[in-house]
Design a protein around this nucleic acid. Structure first.
Length: 290
DNA sequence: AGGTTGACCTGGACGC
DNA sequence: TGCGTCCAGGTCAACC
């Protein structure tokens, strides 16, 4: 469901509500292991952890976790709050996943798969009807364990012109398929791929390797501006997307092409077309995009 | 190796 | 009302 702006909005909201809190109880529903780490290991690993911070990497939400109190003593026996990162809980929302901060008394929604009770009295819940979401726990102190989580692809908000152009050079696949490929860039999904191609005036089926330097730079800027604008509006609420507090975003009101099939283009008035590219529903204006 | 397709799930919208 | 069909923002494994 959520792409970069929605995941960013959720991560910020969760961070603001749980940073510095501590996990005191963990519950996992009987969910046929859609988790990257078995539920039992996650529950054990999360127990008693202090939450250092929550942030976004690509479409993943990463919760940085500290050492357990009473664990291996820090040098000098300091009593300062320990902000050292010892473990991570990584949440991918898939298509319909939600990460909510509630109170334990709040009604438990259908398809709730995980609940973390916090010392402050708050509760973090992972809800995912379609079960495309993924949960992973990493103990960074365990030997042989992978390092901290990193996205395979580049960060669209930070990537420079040269690096961006290099992602498309020599490739035959449709530019839209390249935008969706998370190993090239992490965070772009169907909505923002369509919207950025419209803004850049490029047809979704154009072959990546045949775009000019000018077009690629236009695309990079369009994508960055659209993502930043969507973050300011709290993301796009299509169907049931809500942020950490259950609030909807507003960027869907500004979509130019996505899910506007047959409606007039906001620039030229011609009807928006729908085609399938890379197996995904794709919307564009045949007049404004070449 | 790069590129494409279908499978994974549930639920909502729509047509008959 | 009920049933069938289609569609959905993401990712993989399996194929060409």
């Amino acid at each position: 469901m959520p792409e970069l702006p929605e995941v960013e909005t959720i991560a910020r909201g969760v961070d603001a509500r749980v940073r510095g809190d501590q996990i005191v109880d963990v519950w996992f529903g009987s969910h046929r292991e859609p988790f990257n780490t078995p539920a039992k290991l996650q529950a054990r690993g999360l127990q008693e952890r202090r939450i250092v911070s929550v942030h976004r990497i690509g479409k993943h939400i990463v919760m940085e976790l500290g050492l357990r109190p009473g664990g291996p003593a820090t040098a000098g026996g300091s009593t300062k709050p320990d902000n050292e990162i010892a473990a991570q809980w990584i949440v991918h929302l898939g298509m319909t996943g939600r990460l909510l901060v509630t109170t334990p008394e709040a009604e438990v929604a259908k398809h709730t798969h995980a609940r973390l009770t916090l010392k402050s009295g708050r509760e973090i819940r992972f809800v995912d009807p379609r079960r495309f979401g993924r949960l992973e726990f990493r103990d960074l102190r365990k030997r042989g364990e992978p390092a901290g989580f990193e996205a395979k692809g580049a960060e669209p908000l930070k990537i420079g012109a040269g690096e961006f152009a290099k992602l498309f050079r020599g490739r035959k696949l449709a530019v839209k398929a390249a935008l969706l490929n998370q190993t090239l860039m992490a965070g772009v999904g169907n909505i923002y791929a369509d919207e950025s191609l419209f803004r850049a005036g490029i047809r979704p089926r154009r072959r990546s390797g045949r775009l000019t330097g000018t077009q690629l730079e236009k695309l990079r800027i369009a994508l960055k501006e659209i993502l930043e604008h969507a973050i300011r509006l709290g993301g796009s609420s299509v169907s049931d997307y809500v942020d950490a507090e259950g609030v909807r975003g507003f960027f869907q009101l500004e979509h130019c092409v996505y899910q506007r099939t047959g409606e007039p283009c906001r620039t030229c008035g011609k009807p928006i077309k729908r085609i399938v590219v890379a197996g995904r529903s794709t919307h564009y204006c045949a007049h404004c995009q070449r």
